[in-house]
Design a protein around this nucleic acid. Structure first.
Lengths: 184, 184
DNA sequence: TATTGTTATACTCTATAACTATA
DNA sequence: TATAGTTATAGAGTATAACAATA
């Protein structure tokens, strides 16, 4: 089992493999693999942050399962999307958009280039930087990934309930905006 | 800046430091730190998974900011909570509850023990295993952490809106349960 | 001087496998 | 043989710092 998420716990008190059994509708107990019994999760149980974390991890894992064999990781997908949406952007700009340092992106972009999915052309205007773009193969790969992504989001929609979707999304955006402005 | 979260992107297309500027209420563009302009995030923008991810990261970061200086990481907090809720449990049981391998927990528990926050007593019944418990100091530390956690959750509640809290929580639980049963 | 991208290095979190001491 | 915990090792993901090329 591959773990792609971070730490266990805390507010972020998640389990990468959320094998929670809703009891009375609540993930209060966690059955142990060993069948040894259950463990109480205590105050974590009624907390928004905790559930946010678990839901995100579950969503992440489900997506990873869907994409799976393509060999392309989530990071590659995001890079491809942003490049498609902003052809010609620089690596630094991509990093900013995606929240990663340029040095983090270098190996990923190198790999995408090796696979023939993107092009790195020296920018005419500023020859220090590369203008990133998708190759036709990259567009195909992205289209396939987007198919997975769409399917995944449909699955999420089904669980959320179509009638709740907008409210749910709005709430997430509110959290995002509110916590963000809170930033140190 | 410490990054504790995982990868960038994809469905999981997040940015660890979500510096998104809602435009017309939507995180569609991301202003670049360099002030260079904005980058379109494309289809990621209307996606539940994407927002789930960003909201979770923002929540995580906000929590980390709150706890900050204590030196105790989220992982430690979760361990303390579960130990308090289940005094005498074993390391393996704790790992199961928290979704981490026992070998992952070993160094963390060693550190908590060194700090005098937990005790590891050989279990009478099975002398291979340890019975974990909190020391008084551990209870104090946990209480302090829980104070932070409570404050954090109040902040989340305020953003979600008290009247939406339950529905939001239910939706998260639905996602969790649905995606989980989906498990490979 | 400042910035783009690369490289070297390091850190965190996590897992698997092998080993010990019990069962 | 099987399990609890430890240790060694590895891998993914990320960051900072220093460097070459270019502005």
């Amino acid at each position: 089992m591959r773990r792609e998420e971070e730490g266990p716990l805390a507010q972020p008190a998640g389990a990468s493999r959320p094998s929670i059994r809703p009891r009375g509708g609540r993930p209060a107990l966690r059955a142990l693999p060993g069948g040894g019994g259950t463990v109480r999760l205590g105050p974590l149980t009624e907390t928004l942050g905790f559930h946010l974390r678990l839901a995100q991890e579950a969503s992440f894992a489900a997506f990873a399962r869907r994409v799976g064999d393509s060999g392309l990781k989530p990071g590659h997908y995001a890079a491809l999307v942003v490049i498609q949406e902003n052809p010609g952007l620089s690596q630094t700009a991509l990093g900013g958009a995606v929240g990663r340092d340029k040095s983090t992106l270098t190996p990923k972009l190198t790999e995408l280039e090796k696979r023939g999915l993107i092009r790195r052309d020296r920018a005419a205007a500023d020859r220090r930087s590369y203008a990133l773009s998708l190759t036709p193969a990259g567009q195909d790969a992205l289209a396939a990934l987007q198919g997975h992504a769409a399917a995944h989001d449909r699955a999420l929609d089904a669980l959320v309930g179509p009638e709740n979707r907008q409210a749910f999304l709005d709430t997430l955006r509110r959290l995002l905006a509110g916590l963000d402005s809170d930033e140190a």
